[in-house]
Each structure stands twice: as structure tokens, then as C-alpha cells.
Design a protein around this nucleic acid. Structure first.
Lengths: 349, 349
DNA sequence: CTGAAAGCGCTTACAG
DNA sequence: CTGAAAGCGCTTACAG
């Protein structure tokens, strides 16, 4: 591997000048810079990251720790994030070191990674409300970015969607269509996103002058089978009145609900309306649902570039409060939502 | 962070001696070593990996590049490997840098990672037969370990299961039970494991004096729906005689086959025998199948420690040929296999 | 605009 | 058994 010394010897310049030329320092003579750049290219020069790191104190590596779910499957959203994130980090010449957390204590894995002393910062995925990792990293003074929100008015960088609005948008649409019995199939409430969705759901229900029985609310790690089982249960009407609409935390859940509706001979949207939040996972395309699915949409991939940039900027010194992005998911009305069924058209009346 | 210099100043020793004491050099005085170790501990000393790396040329980091499937989902086995691997590498103080490959050319991503110049080696997952990545890394002189086999008589380190034997064991069991019409639901044949499974299958079929129509052989990325669809198709008998037994590349596929059998009112193992290879994924537990599944079993997790160790040893200079492990998967006979149905008991006769 | 020098925190021949 | 010194490949004040 060619080094700065090789180039400087070749050109009769000092390593210092070569270094400055290659790093875009303004004081270098334009001609010198061109010569240096040309020979660097010709000699196939690559800066030695280790040496750079030793002197700058920065590693150009950030960490992410995957957390396995209770059933030992990391969710498929994780791989989606991983794909976008490694690409976005690579754009800024940063590598991703990955670990998988198999323990109960959520900060242990971070502590261990930190001890190895090779990381500039962390990306926190799937945060809980008041996530203990946030507290831990803040106390240690380690830069990090959160995918999502763990609390209001925080000092750290984050990128997330407004999950409260996700639910209120959904409920408002359904209420405007005349629905009064709206069920909610949420994700695991210990995660911040699901907690926010629930708050939004309840407040929008109240806002619309409606009430919701607890039997209409389910929460679990999103899956098709969760949607199927819960919808079947709620639509059986064993617990009194049946819902006429479902708000689903994910398209996977919605797939299960549609299946349950099909099994019960219910038409969507004639007998039942369904709306879901859509992370735009390649494996679950809402436009290919039958009927096409009304969604609040915010592609998971869109989060990756700002996540990477926020973290790197923060490492480079930008204040965390200046690196906070909260986006409003787009409401896309398709064919799975319609007016509440009336009189004779409603098989339950 | 405390450095060697801090410790040496504290004790009035040279940094060289402190370094040697901490690195277990035999020539250091026992008393000196103890003193050094004690103060190192007291001062919370952690060696600076970057400095170590600059001088030794080793980074203690290895790379793995995830390949997305055509449907953009990385298989769930990938996360299983990731979990075991990061743990096994951590035992030897090595970190895993991850990238996701989104391109057509399989070596591009490796080239890019290599250019960054921060890795000691690679772990190759899901190899193809005569995998181009093997060729590429060999030519570049980059250490790597393969999870699986890409060819016979190779020079690189690998850990894999004997996939030929996986199929022959399955076929021999079924043939011994009297089955003569054995179907095979394989993984994607472009992968080495599936190519080996197919070779094993065909040779065992011939060995047993049987033949197999091409309509009895299916191949696809393993999934429950693949098993379900294919089994339904084969059992419908549209293409002549129906199989009395299925050899499945994975428990996911077997789950689909069992479902199809159920839909058709076929009892397992009374009317149909099913055997699968079991990677022991936490989400698909063969003993919890109904009926419990006969399998060839080799936990994916078991591969991780030898993979990590083979790679690290190879990086440290051990010859690749001395770091090759091929294990024979265990045959576990449970309740999904039985004698071939005869006469009146066979609904198809 | 360029160079000589110090230094980042280690390891490792080479002396003694 | 221990130390002084060189060096890994860079960056960056400090001079000029």
C-alpha cells in the first residue's frame, strides 16, 4: 500500500504538504495539489484509517446493537434499516459495527462495545419510552442518534415519524366516514412508537366524541397471525358489538385482518374498513393488497440517510437539538376504507 | 483514558516493560507483572486498539456482507448466524463490521470494504458452487472463512455440514420404510448447499434402485408457502402418480407440506411421510410440529464458534487446510415418517 | 505556500 | 529482567 511518504518521495515534497493537498487545505498551491492528486491516484494511495484515527481520535465507525425479540426473531424491519443505514453511512465513509444483544439488561451490550473503545457513536433502534440506553449513553457522553422518540423535549439527535399523528389521522378519516366502533391493533406498547400510537388513538377517539371498549384494543409484536387471530376474535362479537373498522400498526397485521374478514365473508370496505401504517417493507406492498390498502405511509428507508447524517454531524460537534427531525406520515386513501355500513347492507344489523 | 505511559510514570517503569507485563511476555519478573497488572486495573487501563493496530497491522475486525434475496428479504437464518457469530468473535476480542450488498456483482461490495482497509478478513455466508467471492478474495490474498463448501478439495478454511449425506440419510430412511415415490423440495440450487443436497438425493435414489420424475423435484428459496404450494400440486396427482414421501430442505418447507397434507385430509405419517433438514431456528421447532418432525439436524448456532475461530486462526497464520470442518448432521427419527401406505390403507389405491 | 518536528499510543528488535 | 529507541502512517501547530 502506498503511503504519504511514498508520494512525498516521488514528488520531492514533504509529507505535510502532501497530506494538506489531499485533505483539501486551502493554502496549498493549485499546481501542487494537482500533481499530488495525480500521483496519489496513480500510486493507488488510500489513507490509512488507523493512522488517521490514532491522531484524530475518531474511528469513523459507529455501532448498532440488534435486540432479539422474545421469540428470538429480530423483526424484519431491522434488516430494512440495516440495508439503508450501511449505505448511508458508507456515503460519509463510516462503517457499521454490529452486535446482537442476548441479555436482559439493555445497556450491558453497549457497555461492552464502549469498553472496546473503537466506536464514535451509536444508532439506537426500536426505542422504548424513557429508554435506559439513552440515559446510559448520555451520562457517558457518548454520541448517539435515536430512530424514534423516547420522550418529549430531549437533547439528543433523532429522526422519527409523528406516531401520535399516525393514529389521529387514521381515526379522523374513519370517523369522517361515519365509523363509531373502531378497533386498534397496536404493536408492543413497551416500544415508544406503540405508546405514541395508542395516545394518539385514544385522544382522537375522544376528540371525535366516541368511546372504545378495551376489548377493541390489542397489542403484540406485529405479525400476520396476530392480526388474523385478534380480528377473528373481535369480529365474532362474543364481547358485544363488533368493530366496523380496524386501525393496524403495520401492513402485516392488516394482512391478517383482511384474511379474517375473508374467512367471515365480510367485504372490505363494504362491511369493514381497514387502515394500516405502512413502513414500505418490500415484502409487504400495500398497493398489492386486495383491496389496495389505505395507509399512513413513511418508508423505513427514508429514515436511514437522516439517521446516518444526524449521528455523524453530532459526532462532529453539532448540537443534538439542531439534529432532530420529526416527519408527518403521509395519509394515502385507497380501497380498504369506506363509509360505515348502514341498515340492510350491514350484515350485523 | 489511562495509557501505558500513565502506568509507567506511576510505577517508575518504562512503557516497554509495562507493555510486556500486560501482554504476558514470559521474561517479566513476576513481582513486576503483578504490580503492573494491579495499577492497570486500578487506573482502568484499556489498551488503545487503534495504536495496537497501527503497529501490528491487525485491526481485530472482520467483515460480513449480507446479500439480500430477490424479494429483498434476507433469510432468517442470517440473523441466527449473526447472533452466534458476534458472540463468538467477541470471545476472541474481534468485532464484526457489516455491510449489505444491493448489487448484482457479488464481489463489488467486498472490493469496496477492502478499499477501506480496516478489515483482517471476511466471513462468507451462503456460498454458491464455485463462488466468485472465493476466487476474488483468494487472488487478493485476503483471509476468509466459508460457511459451507463451494467445491471439493479447497485450500481455504470452512465449516459446513455434509449436505450430500443429509439427503442420502433421508432417502435411505424412506427407502427402508418402503417408499418408492419420494419427492424433493430443495432450496435454491444456485447455492452450494442445495446443489449438494440434490446430488445426494439423486445418488441415493439411484442407489436404492428407484427413479424420480422431474415433477417430484422442486427448488426455491425455502418458505412455508413454497412447501404448501408445491406439495398441493404434487399431491393432486395431476402429473401422474403421487409421492408417498417428501424430503424437505428446511423445516419451513415441511410446515407447508404438513399444511397441504392436512388440507387434503392426508394423515402423516399414515398416508404421507415427511422429513426435513433442521437448522434449529428458534422460530421453527421441529419437535413442536404436529406430528413431531423427523429431521436431519445441525443447529446453525453450532457453526458460529468454529467459523469465528477458523477465521481468526487463519488470520493469525494457520494454514487454511488445517481449518476445515465438515460435520455429519444427526438423523432424528420422530413421528412424521412411517412405512409406506399399503393397499386399503392408502387412499390413493 | 511549504517544511521540519512533535506526537497520537502502542510494539518490538536491540542493548545491556 | 529492563530500558532507550525506532517506528507504524498519519495530522497539525509552529516557523519561515
Amino acid at each position: 500500500m502506498a503511503t504519504l511518504k511514498d508520494i512525498s518521495a516521488e514528488l520531492g515534497l514533504s509529507v505535510a504538504t502532501v497530506s494538506r493537498a489531499l485533505n483539501g487545505f486551502p493554502e496549498v498551491n493549485a499546481k501542487t495539489r494537482m500533481k499530488v492528486e495525480a500521483t496519489a491516484k496513480r500510486m493507488g494511495y488510500r489513507p490509512n484509517r488507523t493512522a488517521q484515527r490514532l491522531v484524530t481520535g475518531k474511528s469513523n465507525m459507529v455501532g448498532m446493537i440488534a435486540k432479539l425479540n422474545a421469540d428470538n426473531t429480530a423483526d424484519r424491519t431491522f434488516l430494512e434499516i440495516l440495508t439503508g443505514l450501511t449505505a448511508a453511512l458508507a456515503e460519509r465513509d463510516v462503517d457499521l459495527v454490529l452486535a446482537v444483544d442476548q441479555e436482559d439488561d439493555p445497556v450491558k451490550a453497549y457497555e461492552r462495545m464502549l469498553e472496546r473503545g473503537i466506536l464514535d457513536g451509536f444508532i439506537l433502534n426500536a426505542p422504548m419510552r424513557d429508554d435506559p440506553r439513552v440515559d446510559f449513553l448520555t451520562r457517558r457522553g457518548v454520541p448517539f442518534v435515536v430512530h424514534g422518540q423516547t420522550a418529549e423535549d430531549v437533547g439528543y439527535p433523532f429522526y422519527g415519524i409523528d406516531n401520535t399523528a399516525v393514529s389521529t389521522d387514521a381515526v379522523q378519516l374513519l370517523a369522517a366516514l361515519g365509523h363509531r366502533r373502531i378497533a386498534f391493533l397496536n404493536g408492543d406498547r413497551s416500544y415508544a412508537f406503540a405508546a405514541d400510537r395508542e395516545r394518539g388513538f385514544r385522544s382522537a377517539i375522544a376528540e371525535a366524541g366516541l368511546t372504545v371498549p378495551e376489548a377493541f384494543i390489542g397489542e403484540e409484536t406485529p405479525s400476520e397471525s396476530f392480526g388474523y387471530t385478534k380480528a377473528l376474535e373481535m369480529l365474532s362479537g362474543r364481547s358485544g358489538a363488533r368493530p366496523t373498522a380496524f386501525v393496524c400498526a403495520s401492513t402485516m397485521i392488516a394482512a391478517g385482518v383482511l384474511k379474517a374478514a375473508g374467512d367471515l365473508g365480510l367485504g372490505v370496505p363494504a362491511d369493514l374498513s381497514v387502515i394500516a401504517h405502512d413502513d414500505a417493507l418490500p415484502a409487504f406492498r400495500a398497493v398489492e393488497f386486495e383491496p389496495t390498502l389505505t395507509v399512513t405511509r413513511s418508508p423505513l428507508r427514508d429514515a436511514c440517510v437522516p439517521l446516518a447524517n444526524h449521528l455523524i454531524d453530532h459526532i462532529d460537534g453539532t448540537d443534538g437539538r439542531d439534529l432532530q427531525t420529526l416527519v408527518h406520515a403521509e395519509l394515502i386513501i385507497r380501497n380498504s376504507t369506506g363509509p360505515v355500513p348502514q341498515g340492510g347492507q350491514d350484515p350485523w344489523h
